[in-house]
Nucleic acid binder design. Structure first.
Length: 953
RNA sequence: GGGCUCGUAGCUCAGUUGGUUAGAGCGCACGCCUGAUAAGCGUGAGGUCGGUAGUCCGAAUCUACCCGGGCCCA
């Protein structure tokens, strides 16, 4: 049969062979590989192998130990693993200690909710035990899920913020801050449930639409202020004498009026007056010009019964003016009060354009109060009743049911302009369902504007300076964090919860607090041994120790322990100390922090401040941030929106290497579009890369580099070209890795596989590889190049395709380095002598001539003159310049480059063109070339001379 | 509402200091090969650069405004 003849030479060819399978089967094979790594203790091996090498520290930011990981975690952990694995292969000792944020409200809330009503009777220690169990459970789950992504690290000994050693570290940092006088106690308004008599966090609030009172109240101006208003032209002189001149405010919480200390106006809004008669009196009230109509409507003033002033002034003109409180006779605080202040949160959306300000009962009010040096006045007790500093008719009454009394009093005395109701969303306690109030309580703060004794600068100043020394990737991170540092208030570090590290404050019976560097260090020592639970189970004497030298006037046995815990941000903000400095003795600042861009406000800033306070330096040299996952339209992802991608599903569907390759392919600095389809498409790239490696592996199967490598000078020109392309690739990929531009790493490597390798080199090489004698110099030349390419590609890809490259490393018979795992190997280096210049233009010319030839051949194929290019003979009608290039390269080499059987040259054309036709020669049945030499060997009439020589023993 | 930030072919990315017909790979369409075969090769069609108005001899690249996203605040 004819077919038999066609295939009779197949056995004489050097066809590719490898046990590196074409089908990856990642989902099945990856877990086996991980198991093997675990058994071989790969992370420990790497540590041992790099011991003594220069350190590169990427310090892990702790995710919250709650729930399964999501795609955001995948991006974060995989990027970190790229860095760590690359630095390791670049020769650094790059340990990775994963950590978890274990304390905090979300866990406590979940645990308390799961426990149900019995939680209320449980002692704190017991709730804390449950919380620890819960956190521990999710640490295990997430650790498993992170490792399933191929991440290496000290997962058998991670850092957990509830471990005694970690907690002790936090307290040591805190001790430094206390010692430098940065820590202080002050009243601050927080959400408070009067039913539960407890502080609530934002997450414990439920917002419900309710009807609230809405009242407009006049605050009478002082005589001096009236004078000033006359001078400003707001109030005509003659009117002032016979009218009540006042500032009109609007509020939905009449009970807070008792704590009013100021009125806020917007600096750039216009203010004017409304004059009207009510109950036989004439009023002139200052309101924002844009609110006049709304005010008139609220007061139901008939047209013609009121007069709007013709003069307006800016809010800045009103700053510092004074008024009398409508029902509090004397300023109950020891600071200034009853003054007009400026605030840019004043709007014209509702109210009068003047905002009633009670620093003890609102967050904005509080911040304004701080700015103007007002007291944080909160005359409300734990149970929601007024204390004795308010007028007698309010004392002891609950703030939740004084609305009628307040309104009535204001009405009676002529200060109530209008009253109504308003529907709005108001916070309620998640447990009691009661409306929540804002109430000032004592909290602990770290002052950012207090001068440090050692530097003479404030934390804010130091932060602003240090931020310029840090390398931010991308660079705008600096602007972002600087903006936040510029305007941030003092850091409130206390929380009224159970699941956290107690703030080590003792109080004496007379109310004085004991908080010194020494006392904190003593507690730290105790916590290091017994854990923070002991704060609840041990006495102050046991905690501080019998020998503790108390300051004057304190008695060990009379001390009480405060029951505030630290803001969890303070805990994680000390990880640079607890983990890097204290546990590992690494030099701080460390090399890199790498997190999502939300951490500019969070972990980066809140690590920077404690570090500056404690050691006077930032904890990091560089900070890299990534964006967030969004859906295909660029919108944020959430389970409720239904555009959520489950990380678990993706891993089990495609395998970790696909996810990792996907992470490498996108620009993480921006938002990352993430859909199952997008991740699925990465499989195409993976297959191309895998097949490229497989082809290279299968063609050097019989190659022994030590004995059979061909020196560069003796290599075929196209093989030299590949060697040069490889040097470029190594240089560019290395640079991209160094700069952490992983999507460039990806595109460089992927394009190299696709273009240089698959579409050009490996195709061109087939004739030589398959048909030349196995041990011929021509074949060995190609194998030498392929070997170098392969050994470089495998290592360059290893930080990304961690499983697949380990598999390829295994399949590589002669490794460039004798190590059992590719993750112990070193990155390929550029060979400077090969990276010679001057070849680029030559190859660009040759490749463009090749492109032209291929286009012409495509025409022949379309006309059914040829099928494969090997059937063709091309003629290059060349310009003298192109002809010279071709002659220098060699026409037979050019034919090989185009994979045609013959290339001829015709010189002297004005413009280079290509003509082609079917080869006139016979087809060699072995190499399929149409060469003149076919049939010249009588022993083998159906093959060419080259093939005849090869098959002849 | 504020701070920071993003918007180039269906997708993922390039596009130095503004300068000839805006590039690559993938995908897609069409075709070839069957000695990388649940592979491989070739050819080709796709963007006027989120929009508008400016500056300039000339703008994806500079300015202003607008639209639509994201993160963090309010």
């Amino acid at each position: 049969m004819a077919d038999e003849g066609k295939h009779s030479y197949r056995d004489t060819l050097n066809l590719p062979e490898t046990n590196f399978a074409m089908k990856a089967n990642l989902v099945q094979r990856e877990p086996q590989r991980r198991k093997q790594w675990a058994q071989e203790k790969i992370y420990a091996q790497i540590r041992a192998a790099r011991a003594g090498a220069p350190l590169y520290i990427l310090h892990d930011g702790p995710p919250y130990a709650n729930g399964d990981i999501h795609m955001g975690h995948v991006i974060n952990k995989v990027l970190k693993d790229f860095v760590v694995k690359y630095r390791t292969m670049a020769g650094f000792d790059a340990p990775y200690i994963p950590g978890w944020d274990c304390h905090g409200l979300p866990i406590e809330s979940k645990v308390v909710t799961d426990l149900g009503p019995k939680a209320r009777e449980m002692p704190k220690e017991q709730i804390r035990r449950e919380c620890m169990k819960y956190a521990g459970k999710y640490v295990k789950i997430q650790a498993r899920q992170f490792q399933d992504l191929g991440v290496f690290g000290a997962f058998d000994d991670p850092y957990l913020t509830f471990k005694p050693a970690y907690e002790a570290g936090i307290l040591e940092v805190f001790a430094h801050l206390v010692g430098k006088g940065l820590v202080y106690k002050q009243l601050k308004p927080i959400h408070w449930c009067v039913g539960c008599e407890t502080a609530l966090a934002e997450a414990e609030l439920e917002y419900k639409d309710v009807a609230s009172p809405s009242i407009f109240v006049n605050f009478p101006a002082t005589d001096e202020t009236v004078q000033r208003l006359i001078e400003l032209g707001l109030v005509p002189d003659e009117r002032a004498r016979q009218a009540v001149v006042s500032f009109m405010i609007w509020t939905t919480t009449p009970w807070t009026l008792a704590a009013n200390l100021a009125l806020a106006v917007h600096p750039y809004l216009d203010y004017t007056t409304v004059r009207y008669e009510k109950n036989g009196r004439t009023y002139v009230s200052v309101v924002a010009t844009d609110r006049v109509q709304a005010v008139v409507q609220a007061g139901k003033l008939p047209a013609g019964q009121y007069v709007v002033g013709d003069k307006t002034v800016r809010g800045t003109e009103l700053e510092g003016l004074r008024y009398q409180h409508p029902f509090v006779e004397n300023n109950p605080t020891d600071k200034d009060a009853y003054v007009v202040i400026l605030a840019d949160y004043v709007t014209t959306e509702d109210g009068t354009g003047l905002v009633h300000t009670a620093p003890g009962h609102g967050l904005e009010d509080y911040l304004s109060g701080q700015k103007y040096g007002l007291a944080v006045y909160s005359p409300v007790q734990d149970d929601g009743t007024y204390d004795d500093t308010v007028p007698t008719w309010l004392r002891g009454r609950s703030v939740l049911d004084v609305e009628k009394d307040v309104n009535g009093w204001l009405q009676e005395h002529g200060w109530l302009f209008a009253r109504g109701q308003i529907q709005h969303s108001y916070p309620h306690c998640w447990r009691s369902r009661d409306p929540v109030i804002f109430r000032a309580t004592e909290q602990w703060f770290i002052g950012v504007d207090k001068e440090l004794p050692d530097t003479g600068k404030t934390l804010r100043q130091m932060a602003m300076e240090n931020v310029e020394q840090v390398r931010w990737i991308p660079a705008w991170g600096q602007k972002r964090i600087a903006g936040m540092l510029e305007s941030r208030p003092d850091w409130c570090i206390s929380r009224q919860r159970s699941w956290g590290l107690p703030i080590p404050v003792f109080t004496a019976p007379d109310g004085r607090t004991l908080l010194t560097k020494e006392s904190v260090l003593a507690v730290s020592k105790h916590v290091a041994q017994h854990g923070s639970d002991s704060w609840f189970t041990h006495s102050p004497r046991q905690i501080l120790g019998d020998g503790f030298a108390l300051p004057e006037g304190f008695n060990l046995d009379e001390l009480q322990k405060e029951e505030n815990i630290f803001d969890v941000w303070f805990e994680s903000g000390c990880s640079w100390y607890s983990v890097c400095a204290r546990r590992e003795h690494w030099p701080v600042p460390v090399d890199l922090y790498l997190e999502g861009s939300d951490q500019h406000r969070g972990w980066f800033q809140l690590s920077l401040l404690p570090a500056l306070g404690a050691i006077g330096s930032a904890p990091f040299r560089s900070v890299l941030t990534h964006g967030f996952t969004v859906d295909e339209k660029g919108m944020k992802q959430s389970k409720s929106l239904g555009n959520y991608v489950s990380a678990q599903d993706e891993v089990t569907k495609y395998g970790a290497d696909i996810l990792r390759l996907w992470v490498a392919s996108v620009n993480y600095q921006e938002d990352v579009r993430c859909t199952d389809e997008l991740i699925g498409r990465t499989q195409d790239a993976y297959r191309k890369i895998r097949n490229t490696l497989r082809y290279l592996l299968s063609n050097i199967n019989d190659f022994e580099p030590q004995q059979q490598a061909v020196p560069y000078e003796q290599m075929f020109a196209i093989d030299q070209w590949v060697m040069q392309e490889l040097q470029k690739l190594i240089a560019e990929v290395t640079e991209a890795y160094d700069e952490s531009v992983f999507h460039r790493v990806f595109s460089l490597l992927y394009n190299f596989c696709t273009v240089q390798m698959s579409s050009i080199y490996m195709d061109v090489l087939k004739d030589r590889m398959y048909c030349d004698a196995a041990d011929s110099p021509s074949r060995r030349s190609g194998q030498t190049a392929m070997y170098h390419v392969l050994s470089a590609l495998v290592r360059l890809l290893a930080p990304i395709l961690v499983h697949t490259m380990e598999e390829a490393w295994e399949a590589l018979i002669h490794k460039p380095e004798d190590c059992p795992s590719i993750h112990l190997a070193h990155m390929p280096q550029v060979n400077p002598t090969l990276a010679e210049a001057g070849q680029e233009a030559k190859w660009q010319k040759l490749m463009s001539l090749r492109d032209e030839a291929l286009r012409v051949l495509e025409g022949l194929r379309r006309d059914k003159i040829i099928a494969s290019n090997q059937e063709a003979s091309i003629t290059m009608q060349c310009t003298p310049e192109d002809a010279a290039a071709l002659k220098e390269f060699g026409l037979s080499q050019f034919a090989a480059l185009c994979i045609v059987s013959e290339a001829k040259l015709a010189e002297g054309a004005a413009q280079t063109t290509v003509t082609a036709g079917k080869s006139p020669h016979a087809k060699c049945q072995r190499c399929w070339n149409y060469w003149p030499s076919v049939g010249t060997d009588p022993e083998h009439p159906d093959i060419c001379a080259r093939c005849a020589a090869v098959v002849t023993p």
